[in-house]
């Protein structure tokens, strides 16, 4: 993966291995402290946490960051700070998350260096590709649905999730208005990582919501034997999760074949990132004798 180039040899928190991303939003849990709520989320299985507080003063934010740093360390999960690279360093966070503001990614990378995580919010495939090229460690893909935490931003819909599933090669997480009621369709569109904010922190029982979301993610991602695709003109049930696995399943590893999914050629380097979904049409072609 791309981030390896930043860190040769030893892998620390940069080994981005998460599936449920939780972001703080204190306005959704009046009467409960941030620490309580986030601890519950971590109990429930949140495996990366971001501190986001757009209105807090920096000193207040640093205090919260230090608190979450301690808490996430207890659970051994990465801790990301929204928007403030310098503060992320001061709080010894694992990284920072930036938006689409000018040079956000570049400046964050310059400040944090190669070893810390830099994530970027993206709202289109172009932005995703730019973030990938710019050396982002992961991207947010959204808002999938209209959301109260980003009022006014038009939802990108599941279309962008499908595009991301096909084209984005670094870790990416679907975000924006996701809750237990719609998570399955986001996963069906190809997401393998989800981020929820209000659905988790605003719930009576954040741990239970996290557990449910985690269960949906893991059964979707390892939904072995569940995809029925059209393969070379015939129906094919497969346990393969990705195109790469399908090629291996068919004993075609190392053969000079070309793959097409839903009418679009998929370059070989994207095979392992392309998730198979039921209803997908896959063609595997090669050269035969001809005049």
């Amino acid at each position: 993966m791309r981030w390896r180039k930043y860190r040769k040899g030893s892998f620390g928190m940069k080994k981005l291995d998460f599936s449920l991303y939780v972001i703080t939003a204190e306005n959704y849990h009046p009467g409960k402290t941030m620490e309580e709520v986030m601890r519950e989320a971590l109990y429930g299985g949140a495996d990366i946490v971001q501190l986001r507080h757009k209105t807090a003063k920096e000193s207040e934010l640093l205090e919260k960051a230090r608190l979450l740093r301690g808490l996430t360390r207890e659970f051994g999960v990465p801790f990301i700070v929204n928007d403030y690279p310098q503060l992320a360093i001061e709080a010894d966070a694992d990284g920072v998350h930036v938006g689409q503001e000018d040079h956000g990614l570049r400046e964050a990378r310059e400040l944090l260096g190669p070893d810390r995580i830099v994530g970027v919010s993206t709202h289109s495939l172009d932005q995703a590709m730019a973030a990938e090229d710019g050396g982002a460690d992961y991207i947010g893909v959204g808002p999938v649905y209209p959301t109260g935490t980003k009022p006014g931003r038009p939802a990108v819909t599941l279309n962008y999730v499908r595009q991301a599933a096909r084209h984005v090669r670094i870790p990416w997480v679907a975000i924006g208005g996701i809750h237990l009621g719609n998570a399955q369709e986001v996963l069906d569109a190809g997401a393998t990582r989800l981020c929820a904010v209000s659905a988790i922190v605003g719930s009576e029982d954040p741990a239970a919501v996290c557990r449910s979301l985690k269960a949906m993610i893991s059964s979707s991602v390892s939904g072995a034997g569940e995809a029925e695709i059209m393969l070379n003109g015939g129906r094919h049930r497969t346990g393969s999760m990705t195109l790469q696995q399908l090629v291996e399943e068919k004993g075609l590893t190392g053969r000079r074949i070309v793959a097409e999914a839903d009418g679009t050629i998929v370059p070989r380097e994207e095979w392992s990132g392309l998730r198979l979904r039921s209803g997908m049409t896959v063609e595997l072609v090669h050269f035969v004798g001809g005049g």
Partner: peptide, 20 residues
């Protein structure tokens, strides 16, 4: 030399590609 593009025969284990 010329050749044609065809679906890989998934029922055939042997590599019938011309290029090999």
């Amino acid at each position: 030399i010329t050749f044609a593009v065809r679906r890989v025969n998934l029922d055939e284990v042997a590599d019938d590609s011309i290029l090999q």
